[in-house]
Design a protein around this nucleic acid. Sequence first.
DNA 1: GTGGTCTAGACCACA
DNA 2: GTGGTCTAGACCACG
Lengths: 122, 122, 122, 122
Amino acid sequence: MSKEFQSSKPIYMQIVDQVVIDILQGKQKSPEKLPSVRDMAVKMGVNPNTIQRAYGELERMNVVETRRGQGTFVIENNALLEDIKLSLQEEIIEDFINKMNKIGVKQTEIITQVHHFLNRGI
Amino acid sequence: MSKEFQSSKPIYMQIVDQVVIDILQGKQKSPEKLPSVRDMAVKMGVNPNTIQRAYGELERMNVVETRRGQGTFVIENNALLEDIKLSLQEEIIEDFINKMNKIGVKQTEIITQVHHFLNRGI
Amino acid sequence: MSKEFQSSKPIYMQIVDQVVIDILQGKQKSPEKLPSVRDMAVKMGVNPNTIQRAYGELERMNVVETRRGQGTFVIENNALLEDIKLSLQEEIIEDFINKMNKIGVKQTEIITQVHHFLNRGI
Amino acid sequence: MSKEFQSSKPIYMQIVDQVVIDILQGKQKSPEKLPSVRDMAVKMGVNPNTIQRAYGELERMNVVETRRGQGTFVIENNALLEDIKLSLQEEIIEDFINKMNKIGVKQTEIITQVHHFLNRGI
DNA sequence: GTGGTCTAGACCACA
DNA sequence: GTGGTCTAGACCACG
């Protein structure tokens, strides 16, 4: 992996999102160990301080815990993960609705179109 | 306006999308004149060649016509605009579904969630 | 081969024509690989961007397909090639008629003269 | 008029052709006076020596005569003009046939196609 | 290696 | 002024 970040969000928040998505997808199972700050920094092509900040934020969010001398570990906390999932979901839906409005699709149409799209792939 | 583009799509395609959206929204009425290549380049903070390419693509799509020494003009063609709107819509929906799947929202859930979001704003 | 282009047509269109003619003549069989953008640029004595543009146009015409990191390949499509041949032919005939008119040869005379020329070579 | 010459033929020969065509088309009637070497040089955007050479060639061809202190005049000589017309015509036809062969049009087809083209414009 | 995109800056034709 | 073409050189993603 290398540098590929949106300009809008701070990089460290994008890394937070990425780690959370990895956990939600099961790429990072709990209570598994995350890559070290240094390894992650190389992997993401950013400064170790940025990773440090991301891990700090994840700890503040109660998603991971750091154990002195051992590393950073995913916390088993399904309720919290569910909350995070919901807020990510809300963000995605909002963005989606905005884009649809932007090209002039009325709200009543949106549901219909999503239905069509999903049923087409059956 | 200044530099603010996604990293995924080529800039010239993002400009194409933008112009199409402006037309769909009536910001660019037909047969109105688009900003000149040079003006648009300044406005968007990109190289004139990039605008040239975008305008060329729009001409190829039959959305605008260019008149040598005069400028680039929107073509009246509602049927075509409707087609383009549909394909933009499809692209947006597909992107939306992908993102939702990525965070682990099942397809049956997606409809429900969109419903909830839309009804909340009433 | 080196720089030797007409001044009237854009160079990239002349390259497009040349590639099409090579395919029609069987110099470029399908699905053969065209020279890389850089090699072709050296061969034709032009800038790689000009070749890129020509290959892009050929792809838009469905004459070739490009595979990222692999190269540009001729597509098997005899019907399309026949269409292109017809439009090239029309262009050549129109140019011919214009030149003949320019030196004052009447249309009824043109047929006769072409006949004479062809029969002379028997 | 300005610089616009093919790369294949010497510029002075292209000017010779141009003058002959002008005469054939009646733009230069005989026994009219041609522009002075200096004027023609400016008009064609070339060095006066090049025009001088072209006029010399035209004189050698017996198409014009130069009268000391008066200028260069078209010679009334219909037979010669007819000859020149024929050789120009031959050149054009040969070029035409070559191009048609190049894209794979058989000689028997050529006549048919020219017919089609001419009758279409009726 | 491949093709694809972008910038910087030039020159052209047309009006 | 306008759009259209071309060069030179850079960086990117993909394989």
